[in-house]
Design a protein around this nucleic acid. Sequence first.
RNA 1: GGUUCCGUAGCUCAGUUGGAUAGAGCAACAGCCUUCUAAGCUGUGGGUCGCGCGUUCGAACCGCGCCGGAAUCACCA
Length: 591
Amino acid sequence: MNIENFLGDIVKSSVEALYGKLEGEQLQIQKTRKEFEGDYTLVVFPLLRRSRKSPEATATEIGEYMVANVKEISAYNVIKGFLNLTLDHSFWADRFGEICRDCDYGKAKPTGRNIMIEYSSPNTNKPLHLGHIRNNLLGYSVARILEANGNNVIKVNLVNDRGIHICKSMLAWKLYGNGETPESTGMKGDHLVGKYYVEFDKHYKAQIKELMEQGLSEDEAKKKAPIMQEAQEMLRKWEARDPEVYNLWQTMNGWVYAGFDVTYKALGVDFDKVYYESQTYLLGKSIVEEGLRKGIFFRKEDNSVWIDLTADGLDQKLLLRGDGTSVYITQDLGTAFRRFEDNNLDEMIYVVGNEQNYHFQVLKLILKKLGYDWSDNIYHLSYGMVELPEGKMKSREGTVVDADDLIADMVATAREMSAELGKLDGCSEEESNAISTMVGLGALKYFILKVDPKKTMLFDPRESIDFNGNTGPFIQYTHARICSILRKAREAGIDTTTPCSTLLPIEIELIKNLCDYPNVVAAAGEAFAPSIIANYTYELAKQFNGYYHDYSILRESDSAICAMRIRLAESIAKVIKSAMYLLGIDVPDRM
RNA sequence: GGUUCCGUAGCUCAGUUGGAUAGAGCAACAGCCUUCUAAGCUGUGGGUCGCGCGUUCGAACCGCGCCGGAAUCACCA
């Protein structure tokens, strides 16, 4: 049962009984703030022109009527223009019963909508870093949230496996690699390839410096550096399918994929389909022709194709080079078209950093101008950069936080903390590992997901990630604690089925929060914001901890109340587990 | 300069469609483990919601204008 709708209905019929049929007036009903008495509040200001009375008199009149005529309303009070309504205990007991019985609580009915979400999209020339972690966690979590909202979700990854940057790594490996392999060095494949990307840059910079000392300008030096020219030659060979280059490319990409798989697995993310740019980079040319035919695009003297978006406050954008080869946006036009056609998509979400806001603005606009009305169903889930205390992460300056290192650090710290607190006493090595991994990753994931995606966030490796307060481990801890209570109740053989209709105010608060969960899931789905789920779950866990501390759950002498409290704890654990699932965070039964 | 986004406590962040006295955590201080997990609980201090004007019964939220910061505006991807 949807409480907001129910309240809307009963308030509406009461108001209409008093003042006649409402036309277009919105009834504003919200949860009553903690410091006032009541469950829900009607804001009566908008109704004053109907009642032609003061706010207080209007609120009192409606309150009187509702207590007299609506059986669920047990009391009311009026403060200024706010009518606070109190719902009957049996009403909350009924809602609570519904939650207890519903195994899939929070999940919406199927919508039949097909939604594709693209995330991760790594380059194959270097390992994943902290920025990718934010991307992966957001994408994976949003996919789960959309699923819980009843949609068919297709998770895809578009791997950027071709281009000059890969050639740089390949060339440096060929020149300076001495035949190193992941096997021979024991290095993770993506790290090995990344090492040679850095190596390339080192030699490239040295060559630029040398050429500049010979009197060349910086721009000239950058173009003429032999190693860069060689890399470009390699790219040409790759496009011509030169066997030697192509083989090396396949080998080194293979190393990288093996490395990425390890990282993805550690992060707990996965994909339904992986696209490779080497297979899609030629798409989009037919769209360019279509645009030319329709007169939306134009050709310049050098044969390149452009679109003029100056009327829309943007600028001219290249769509096809003079030599007929495509650029990034050409491919994206082609893949978008194909994805909508092939999968009967209702929506396409791209999880891509905010540095590409302009690109997606252009992409949508072009598709719109071509007359594809599904362009409105493309959504760029733009997220902010992750910054370090010293400023931005720069891969060239080595101020990056490597994803694998970070994950390992988090798990190691979690293990230390757990051991220090004695949480691992009596655990097998296997259990210790499982708990440390859950807690370490829970801390990392929660830390990143609790922040609104579009905001730039700060990551301080030394102190940012904590295990106390508003953190993943706190929520995991609360869940583990509840599980412990339930185990003890089972051992004690407490009958948890005894009905109980008396509820403390704090218990009603907890039930109210539980009732909110489906709305929270829906809101998170609408805004593509896991942060909504994260902050809700923290509030719930925090509230339970306070309750748990103040009231004995197992030792209550009244067995009906004891049973009710155990059921309440059970429902909270159920919602916490379900919410954490939507964030991709595992919850332990003990820790 | 154009476009997009951000600005809330010392720090990191919440704040649902405009509502009542703006909330957490961290840090600081004071308490609480013979009773179900102290990764916890309770309390204290800490605010010109960047600034100004407007809309209205009412603005952190909506509109306009400033100030400050970020990203982007490649025949890179």
